[in-house]
Design a protein around this nucleic acid. Structure first.
Lengths: 211, 211
DNA sequence: ATTATTGTTAACCATTTAGTCAGATAGTTA
DNA sequence: TAACTATCTGACTAAATGGTTAACAATAAT
């Protein structure tokens, strides 16, 4: 057996175990918070002995860091960028759609991030924060150009970004409440589409981009 | 000394201690979550011995319940109702303003509520949930009437309520992130006013209520 | 076949934590 | 003053928790 295959086989067990652990951990961290999630509860959910968990991750904090990192990566990827070349209407539409789909597809990711921020982002490194500031600055500048060109109404670009973030993430973070209010057990594709339509409609009109 | 005064004096110590404890507890619960906040940490913040805390509240869960209850009461009061008699424009304006002011004035209240919902509302009794469903139904009906009368654009009333909730509460829950992005240490009255203006502007236009 | 590496697990330990309790102190009433 | 009640607090306990260790099992390399 070649060296490459060997690494792959070992790596497989390792990778599979880690995924299993991180999946269980993500759920526990959402359900119980950082302190409330115990290594034992993660082990139970992953159906492994506790010691096995600590064989793959040195300690609880490392598990959390891995979960957080994975979450942020996925979030970044899934949302991608705002496409500047097709004008504000398409840009905002695409962005809202991406964020709404992300919220319905991976609510736990949004929840973990939300809890982290609510508690004052104690585990988030500075680079994550400054990176975000940079991102917002950049996009705000883009919106401002469209405003200056008369392509959209004169609304504060930074607050517009906050509005889109909050309105879309709400469906992930407040899932429980929304399901209760709508008297539903689960969301379906129709619901997702309806939210996208609603938000695009109202925000685009709010920005003077339709009608 | 009369019996009334006696009760008042005893009640004063009791009441004052309880307020001190609940204030400290609220902060700890926001910062560390339910499990992360220890009775000792609450005691430290309240500058009392731990045993004294447990003299006034039978156990940790009782402290949390008291915090939660107080939070919900305050939230209800502060927001009040949607005033139906002056039409949709004024109603939405007033509602947004009340919610934004609340978010900036009592961010911890919103944060505790948000964390509770994110984790699946494990401590929230059914009455709180069904009460909310009732509230939303009622207000949605009101919006629907305005829509049917041609007084505002045809937007989904329930999602409109979600939008206003999310957009306003965002400034409380994501305080940390927003301050970082805006590169500020604190919010000032001007910021509050700006948010109110921005949100009213964009949402009212989104509902076809201005321009 | 033997050795080395990787994975698995029960048993154990030190520390933290919620909650108890008995006794001290201060304030109130008769 | 004496009895009574509310407040306060250090010292304690039982359970839970994060993490270690040492022995064992499976797999791969030589």
């Amino acid at each position: 057996m070649t060296s490459a295959n060997q690494v792959k086989k070992n790596g497989n067990i390792r990778a599979k175990s880690q995924v299993k652990i991180l999946t269980a951990a993500r759920t526990e961290f959402v359900l119980q918070g950082y302190r409330g999630a115990t290594v034992q509860s993660i082990a139970d959910r992953a159906e492994m002995p506790k010691a096995n968990i600590l064989y793959y991750f040195k300690n609880k904090e490392n598990i959390y860091h891995a979960v957080l990192e994975h979450t942020l990566e996925m979030w970044d990827e899934g949302i991608g960028d705002i496409e500047a070349d097709k004008g504000p209407k398409v840009a905002i539409e695409k962005f809202i759609e991406a964020k709404v789909r992300m919220s319905f597809k991976h609510p736990e990711a949004s929840k973990i991030y939300a809890m982290e921020i609510i508690q004052g982002a104690p585990h988030l490194k500075d680079y994550a924060r400054t990176y975000q500031r940079q991102w917002v600055r950049e996009k705000a500048k883009l919106f401002q150009q469209w405003i200056d060109n008369g392509e959209m109404a004169n609304v504060d670009p930074v607050h517009l970004i906050f509005l889109i973030w909050s309105a879309t993430q709400h469906y992930a973070d407040f899932e429980t409440q929304i399901l209760t209010i709508m008297n539903r057990a689960d969301f379906e594709e129709d619901d997702v589409q309806q939210v996208i339509t609603f938000l695009c409609d109202i925000i685009l009109r709010g920005c003077g981009l339709i009608k």
